[in-house]
Amino acid sequence: MEVRTIKVFTTVDNINLHTQVVDMSMTYGQQFGPTYLDGADVTKIKPHNSHEGKTFYVLPNDDTLRVEAFEYYHTTDPSFLGRYMSALNHTKKWKYPQVNGLTSIKWADNNCYLATALLTLQQIELKFNPPALQDAYYRARAGEAANFCALILAYCNKTVGELGDVRETMSYLFQHANLDSCKRVLNVVCKTCGQQQTTLKGVEAVMYMGTLSYEQFKKGVQIPCTCGKQATKYLVQQESPFVMMSAPPAQYELKHGTFTCASEYTGNYQCGHYKHITSKETLYCIDGALLTKSSEYKGPITDVFYKENSYTTTIK
């Protein structure tokens, strides 16, 4: 009895394709271990004539594949690729409408935090270190965002349907971005203890939790000093293409032309909904596939993004 075979390709990165001759009487799992086709788990399936010449994702289970996976995804987590594939199996079914010149995501599976993050990423200057993220990001900007969303979920250790947080998501993504040249110098002034300067680099240099107003941050924000008295913390120097200011959701007025974009969060910790506000020729609110415009805006804002380049204080 002759062994019926077909020729397929296996890959971990969709760049390096490895030619395989597979036995049609055995499952993919018996031949390769966990195997995925377009995100779908085909591990328990036997090869079919229609699979001839198709590319299958496999887990990096030998040295060659491990090197290829690390170079593309910059992670050695053995569960990463499987999590990416199972997320992709959902995100490829989502709709990605162009809204006001940006790629958004039609609401499904509690994905409003991903839509808000995706919209924000198209408006701030950011370059990702893992080629996987950078490639998928370019495709997302062009309207094909399924891979990018699935990668975000995998890097953030999230599953489809789980509630997510924009600030946490951005923080994970910033860790995989090139923020080497970003720098922030802060000064804390206390009447009792004097003053202390701190220099922050990388992710810490672009994120701040405690106030939404970048102007206020430049002037000074009140913080408790270690001595128990009130101290003032203010920005001395900022070198970065953008800054992200966050605070627990509270009524906040966004003035046209003073910011790049913002995240609105309605609801409580267990259950809520994100919308995205962007400042173009007027203010726009993007909620999944829905767009509304207004000249002014007041609502429960939790993150505001500002364009920056270089700032030095005039406070002496």
Rank of each mutant, 00 (worst) to 15 (best):
Q30K: 13
E215K: 07
V160T: 03
F217S: 05
D303W: 00
E144I: 06
C149E: 04
A177M: 06
L153C: 06
C225E: 04
S50D: 13
T226S: 15
M207F: 07
T55A: 12
F174Q: 02
N100T: 08
Y311T: 08
L133H: 03
Y269C: 15
P97G: 06
T226C: 11
S263N: 14
G299Y: 00
G29I: 04
D62Q: 08
A205V: 01
S50T: 12
E204G: 10
L118N: 05
T260G: 00
N14G: 15
V42S: 08
G101C: 04
C190N: 02
Y265I: 01
H18G: 05
Y155L: 05
I301N: 00
N129H: 13
N157T: 01
Y57N: 08
G210N: 04
C225I: 00
K275H: 00
N61C: 15
A136F: 08
S263H: 15
Y73K: 04
T282S: 13
F148G: 02
T55Q: 08
H51N: 08
P224F: 10
S240G: 06
F56Y: 09
N89Y: 13
L88H: 05
M207Y: 08
A145K: 05
S181V: 07
G299T: 00
F128M: 04
Y311F: 12
L88E: 06
V185W: 03
Y155D: 04
S294M: 15
E162Q: 11
F174V: 04
Y36M: 03
N268I: 07
L200T: 11
Y172Q: 10
M85L: 12
G53F: 11
T159K: 15
T192N: 13
V22E: 03
K219T: 12
G39R: 06
Y252M: 13
T226W: 07
H256E: 12
Q123W: 04
A108G: 05
N309M: 09
S86E: 15
G143W: 02
Y234N: 05
T278Y: 14
V206Y: 01
V206N: 00
C271Q: 11
Y269E: 15
F9D: 07
M209H: 15
K316V: 15
K218N: 01
Y155A: 03
F56L: 11
P34T: 13
C149S: 06
F32R: 07
V160D: 01
N14D: 10
P300Y: 13
C227Q: 02
R184L: 02
I152F: 00
T27C: 12
T116K: 01
C149K: 01
S279P: 05
D62H: 08
K44T: 14
Q216I: 07
Y72F: 09
T10Q: 10
N14C: 10
I223T: 13
P47F: 05
V67F: 15
Q251K: 10
A140M: 12
T292K: 11
S279M: 07
A231G: 04
G220C: 02
V185G: 01
V185T: 09
D63T: 09
N110L: 04
N129P: 04
A69W: 06
F80D: 03
T292V: 10
C271K: 09
D23T: 11
Q230A: 13
N89V: 14
L186F: 14
Y252L: 08
T198I: 15
T302I: 00
Y96E: 06
N187T: 10
N268M: 10
S310K: 09
D287M: 02
N268S: 13
T91K: 03
T116N: 08
V22L: 12
E162Y: 03
I152H: 03
R83C: 07
G39S: 14
Y252K: 04
F217T: 05
Y36V: 06
F32N: 08
F148T: 05
S181Q: 14
C182H: 01
G82A: 12
G267W: 09
A150D: 03
N14L: 07
P60D: 09
E253R: 08
V236H: 06
E144V: 07
L119Q: 02
T278G: 08
T76K: 09
K7Q: 13
E144Q: 10
Y84L: 06
N111Q: 02
T120N: 11
K316Q: 15
T159L: 09
L37R: 14
D165C: 15
M245W: 01
I223Y: 11
E2L: 10
L126N: 05
F217L: 15
E281Y: 00
T103K: 02
V188F: 07
I223P: 00
L173V: 09
S181F: 11
Q122L: 04
F242K: 00
K106G: 15
V12H: 07
L283F: 12
V8M: 15
T76D: 13
G82M: 14
G161V: 04
L173E: 00
V304S: 01
S263W: 00
N187E: 12
A250L: 08
L200Y: 12
Y306F: 04
P131F: 02
D23I: 15
F242H: 01
Y28V: 04
P130G: 02
I152K: 03
G267N: 07
N309G: 12
R141V: 11
G101Y: 04
F217V: 13
P60F: 06
Q251W: 13
Q134T: 11
K307Y: 09
Y84V: 05
N100D: 11
P241V: 00
L151H: 01
K218F: 03
E68V: 04
V189N: 13
Q122M: 05
T302E: 00
T75I: 10
Q251E: 15
P60Q: 06
G143Q: 04
G101T: 05
N49W: 08
K191D: 11
R66V: 13
V221L: 13
T266G: 10
K54M: 13
T302Y: 01
F148E: 00
Y57P: 04
T159E: 14
Y252V: 13
G143P: 03
P131A: 05
N129C: 08
Y113V: 04
N178C: 10
L59K: 09
Q196F: 13
P249T: 01
Q251P: 12
V188L: 09
Q196I: 09
K293V: 11
V243S: 01
N111D: 03
S86H: 06
C190D: 00
M244E: 01
K219D: 09
V166I: 06
T91F: 02
Y252P: 02
D135L: 08
Q31Y: 14
G101P: 04
G143N: 04
K255I: 13
W94H: 03
C182P: 01
D109N: 09
G29H: 08
P224Y: 13
Y36L: 04
E144T: 07
G161Y: 04
A142V: 13
Y265D: 02
I277E: 03
M245G: 00
R184S: 15
L126C: 10
S279K: 01
A247W: 00
C271D: 06
H48P: 12
K307C: 14
V206K: 00
I6L: 15
A132H: 04
I286C: 01
T169A: 06
I315K: 15
L235I: 10
C190E: 00
D180C: 07
I15L: 15
M245E: 01
W94C: 03
Y138V: 14
Y73G: 03
I15A: 07
T282M: 12
T159N: 10
G82V: 15
K46Q: 15
L37W: 14
I152M: 10
D180Q: 12
S79G: 14
A205Y: 00
V188K: 11
K7P: 11
A289Q: 10
H256K: 14
C227D: 01
K280G: 13
C193L: 02
G29F: 09
K307W: 04
